[in-house]
């Protein structure tokens, strides 16, 4: 393993979150590397100062009444049986994502009213609505998706039997951060969640279901753009795939991004 010790590893060593094997390696390196010891001591000094900050600004005492009441409600809500099935492993994980959206749709999430439905043909509304809901869920709980990596993207490729390389959106400052598979009324869809330096989220939803693709048939001049539930949405299709991209950006920007997505997915 590498003898080069990165700064984040020193931080993780202090935090006690470095894997044991790597911890042992760095501890051995520290015995013979004064410069490395000096770096570690600087980190420890910073950490000690910051721990003092945490203690000095600690919030203690009784909770304000409104927060106290909400906290009690949250605790009761969490005590109820969860919608999440107790599953584990990669494929059940996908099923878990699917389950929450199926239940969500059953509860009416998918029926949320559009603020600008006139701009979206009725046939395309399902894709726009699903993509918006997926974006909102991803924004609320990004941790439910998986960190983007070649392995997770490879899993998508095998699930959908298609090369799903994330389109490059770095021109707009967006980089793919997480990968997801969700259930829609028309079957599973692949999701790439992009974030920029300010943590803005743009969500690309791709469906290969025949129903979803058919819903866009006859649409000219795609990608098209609209505003749905206060979010900019652009949608379009390439052979064998319908896509929608959603974000808290302007319609002009989401349309420009969608055009790039269209080119990338067609390649």
């Amino acid at each position: 393993m590498s003898t080069v010790v990165e700064d984040w590893e020193l931080g993780a060593l202090i935090d006690g979150t470095l894997p044991p094997g790597r911890t042992d390696e760095i501890q051995r390196a520290l015995a013979n590397a004064p410069a490395l010891r000096a770096r570690l001591e600087a980190f420890e000094a910073d950490q000690a100062a910051l721990e003092g900050v945490g203690d000095a600004l600690a919030v203690s005492g009784p909770l304000p009444p409104a927060i106290d009441a909400l906290s009690a409600r949250l605790e009761r809500s969490l005590a109820r049986p969860s919608r999440w099935p107790r599953l584990s492993g990669p494929v059940p994980q996908v099923a878990r994502y699917a389950a929450v959206l199926v239940v969500g749709a059953a509860l009416g999430w998918g029926a949320a009213a559009s603020q600008d439905q006139a701009a979206v043909p009725e046939t395309a509304l399902a894709l726009v609505d699903e993509a918006t809901e997926i974006h909102q869920t991803a924004a609320l709980a990004p941790g439910f998706a998986r960190e983007a990596s070649s392995a997770t993207i490879g899993l998508l490729d095998s699930l959908f039997a298609r090369d799903l390389e994330p389109p490059d959106l770095s021109e707009w400052g967006f980089h793919v951060a997480r990968v997801d598979v969700v259930a829609t009324d028309d079957g599973p869809a692949a999701v790439f969640a992009y974030t920029d330096a300010d943590a803005h989220l743009v969500t690309l939803v791709m469906s290969m279901s025949a129903g979803m693709i058919a819903s866009l048939r006859g649409e000219a001049d795609t990608p098209r753009v609209t505003t749905h539930d206060g979010l900019a949405v652009s949608y379009g299709q390439v052979p064998g795939l319908a896509f929608a991209i959603v974000g808290t950006v302007t319609e002009a920007r989401i349309l420009a991004i969608a055009r790039r997505v269209e080119v990338a997915l067609s390649a």
């Binding site: 949250l74 969860s82 107790r86 609320l140 941790g143």
Partner: peptide
Amino acid sequence: TLERAIAHAGQFRPGGDLRVWLFAI
């Protein structure tokens, strides 16, 4: 944050880290 968490409590994964979930919200 708490109002959003209550509204979406059903999405919290059993065994998940409540603190991280709340910080995310």
